[in-house]
Amino acid sequence: MTKQELVAKMQDAQAFVPGKKVRLHFGDEGAILLDGQANQVTEDAETPADTTLKVSWADWESMAAGQLDGMTAFMTGKLKVEGDMSNAMQLQGVLAKLR
């Protein structure tokens, strides 16, 4: 799946935390903003977010496929969280919408 396909899939699934802005940062692969205020998913790397999740694209794909648990990724350093941790916890339900 490409990042553009992920954005479309997440938009269709309404995959965002209501009222919050959460950024998925994939390093060299860029970023996606899950904007729960505007109810949209965009490739926005500039708008300030309440929470930023930093993860490699490969690890993200494993998480989205259910092969890598989010908590395991966090504990092993594959997933880093900056900002409000509660938003990151709510993303578990968001990921379930993508399966």
Results as ranks from 00 to 15, higher is better:
Met1Arg: 08
Lys3Tyr: 08
Gln4Thr: 13
Glu5Lys: 07
Glu5Cys: 09
Glu5His: 09
Met10Cys: 14
Gln11Glu: 11
Asp12Leu: 13
Ala13Trp: 02
Ala13Thr: 14
Ala13Asn: 06
Ala15Gln: 03
Ala15Tyr: 01
Phe16Ile: 15
Val17Met: 13
Pro18Ile: 07
Gly19Lys: 13
Gly19Thr: 09
Lys20Leu: 12
Lys20Val: 15
Arg23Asn: 04
Glu29Lys: 02
Ile32Cys: 05
Ile32Lys: 07
Leu33Trp: 02
Leu34Arg: 02
Asp35Trp: 05
Gly36Arg: 07
Gln37Thr: 14
Ala38Asn: 10
Ala38Gln: 09
Gln40Trp: 07
Val41Glu: 01
Thr42Val: 03
Glu43His: 03
Glu43Trp: 02
Asp44Arg: 12
Asp44Glu: 11
Asp50Leu: 12
Leu53Ile: 07
Val55Ala: 07
Glu61Thr: 12
Glu61Pro: 00
Ala64Pro: 01
Ala64Trp: 05
Gly66Thr: 14
Gly66Cys: 13
Gln67Lys: 14
Leu68His: 04
Gly70Tyr: 06
Thr72Cys: 04
Ala73Thr: 09
Phe74Ala: 08
Met75Lys: 04
Met75Phe: 09
Thr76Pro: 01
Lys80Glu: 10
Val81Leu: 11
Val81Thr: 11
Gly83Pro: 01
Gly83His: 01
Asp84His: 08
Asn87Lys: 02
Gln90Pro: 02
Gln92Pro: 03
Gly93Asp: 13
Leu95Met: 15
